[in-house]
């Protein structure tokens, strides 16, 4: 029989039966060495769980930051004597700018009222009472932006505008009439950037750790079956046939580990979410369903990829002819 026909025969007749054989063998091995396999499953489970916590956590943080970012506004204070028509004209002009989402006029009375409410804990009533009926708080235009990161550009644009200078609270120095919490905004953006980078780095590290662990576990399983592999090679089993059960074992362990990780993430989130929402009511703890599903799908994929590659790489040195 020539080698070519033998090979053809083998590939045709072996592929389907090989898959079944691999899974059967892997199952048998998992039953027999359940403690080792449990170790691998727990390792994968914990790694994927922590990865999942980081993915969901960072998406939660960016949601929170997003809701804070939405509140980044520019306040342009107006002089008390500003012509109402000029203010209206200017309001619609600013609204026409590309980055501006909305422009709201806040009157002196509204501003004072807001001051009273937000400062209620700090003797605002006394302070207001001490004003003797005068209202020192200027009226303002509150400008919301499409992209909060562009806040500085837009603010500078307003400061440089002659039309604004005419109605500004302090016409001689327009810059001091425009406020947008420069430092706060800058800090917020740098913090969110750091959080995103740290989450990405940690996820990469955890993937690596999970990979090393499963690689090691599979290597243990292989070492335990060195003789068997030696005999398989002796009788002419092809490399893919020898690899099959181990790769299947890695994949099964990874699959079980990732399902466990998903279940505990879901259970943990269901338990934690009401408590968080109760204690921090001003923040929104909503995760988009597509984010959650995407996270779970990527955990399963990640687990299976880690399992497949971990075992395939661990097998490599035993398959050198």
């Amino acid at each position: 029989m020539s080698c070519a026909t033998k090979r053809g025969e083998a590939t045709v007749s072996m592929m389907p039966s090989n898959l079944g054989y691999s899974i059967r063998e892997a199952g048998q091995h998992i039953r027999r060495n359940w403690s080792t396999c449990l170790g691998a499953i727990v390792t994968i489970f914990l790694s994927l769980f922590v990865i999942g916590v980081f993915i969901l956590g960072s998406s939660l943080v960016s949601n929170l930051v997003g809701s804070v970012e939405d509140r980044v506004t520019i306040q342009a204070f107006l002089s008390d004597g500003a012509d109402r028509a000029a203010v209206d004209a200017y309001q619609s002009k600013v609204l026409g700018w590309s980055n501006v989402e909305s422009v709201t006029y806040k009157s002196k009375e509204e501003a004072l009222q807001e001051y009273r409410e937000t400062m209620s804990n700090r003797n605002a009533e006394d302070a207001v009472a001490a004003l003797d009926g005068q209202n020192p708080v200027p009226a303002s235009l509150v400008i919301k932006l499409d992209d909060p990161k562009q806040v500085e550009t837009t603010a500078n644009q307003i400061v440089a505008d002659q039309e604004f200078a005419a109605i500004a609270d302090t016409p001689e120095n327009a810059a001091s009439s425009v406020q947008y919490g420069k430092e706060t905004v800058d800090r917020l953006f740098s913090v969110t950037n750091y959080i995103r980078i740290a989450a990405a780095v940690l996820i990469v590290l955890l993937v690596f750790v999970a990979f090393v662990f499963i690689n090691n576990t599979i290597r243990l399983a292989i070492t335990a079956r060195r003789r068997e592999i030696g005999i398989m090679r002796l009788v002419g089993a092809s490399n893919s046939f020898i690899r099959g059960p181990f790769v299947a074992e890695g994949a099964i362990e990874a699959l079980v580990g990732s399902v466990l990780a998903i279940v505990s993430l879901q259970v943990g989130w269901n338990f934690l979410k009401p408590q968080l929402s109760n204690s921090l009511q001003f923040l929104s703890f909503e995760l988009k369903p597509q984010v959650v599903i995407g996270c779970y799908v990527s955990l399963v994929l990640l687990g299976v990829v880690i399992g497949l590659f971990g075992s395939a790489i661990a097998m490599r040195r035993y398959l050198k002819v």
């Binding site: 033998k6 090979r7 030696g230 002419g236 092809s238 002819v321």
Partner: peptide, 29 residues
């Protein structure tokens, strides 16, 4: 009829199917 010195690694299993081997230490499972 096959030159083993030039044989590619992936063909080796098919060679071994044509050779029975017996060793001193039996190599049984």
């Amino acid at each position: 009829g096959q030159n083993l010195t030039k044989m590619r690694n992936w063909k080796v299993p098919y060679l071994r199917r044509q050779i029975g081997t017996v060793y001193q230490d039996f190599k049984l499972l």
